[in-house]
Amino acid sequence: MRLVNTILRAVIGLLIATLVVSVGMGVFYRYVLKESLYWATEVPNVLLIWIVFLGSVVAFYEKRHIAFSVLAEALPAPLSRLICIIAEIIVLGFFVIMLVYGWQIVTQAMNSLSDALKIPRGYFYLCLPISAALMAACSVENLVKLVRHPAPGRPS
């Protein structure tokens, strides 16, 4: 997963740079060229959803999603470990469900055309199952560590 994370970091960095350029082009066209860019809102919107979902994978791998860990940390070690395992199983279950139904959305939205670019919106939705699959893989890795590792708490 480390390699995946490194690649994803590069990808989202580039996506943000593209986002700045695309919004900037909209401003430039409108105020300088007095013309308008027909994709000026759609492209930034699509870039944003990809940044959010791919960025979530990075945040998940780096354990940066906001969590309430006070309780788990306060409990005695064996109980704390059990709770962490349960929490991780819930997380994994959620991502598996998102993967399955997210894929369904992708296939269903292939005949729904986007407003401006007129490309199938299924491609837009692809960011969701991809990120769900990667986070699920990451979660499996966490789970394996949790079960094998005798030490309590979430590995960091």
Binding site: I12, G13, I16, I51, F53, G55, A59, I66
Partner: peptide, 15 residues
């Protein structure tokens, strides 16, 4: 900084 901004965007927007 750009990459960190992307991650810092993803965290609240995933919520």
């Amino acid at each position: 900084i750009t990459v960190e901004s992307a991650v810092n965007t993803a965290v609240p927007l995933f919520v």
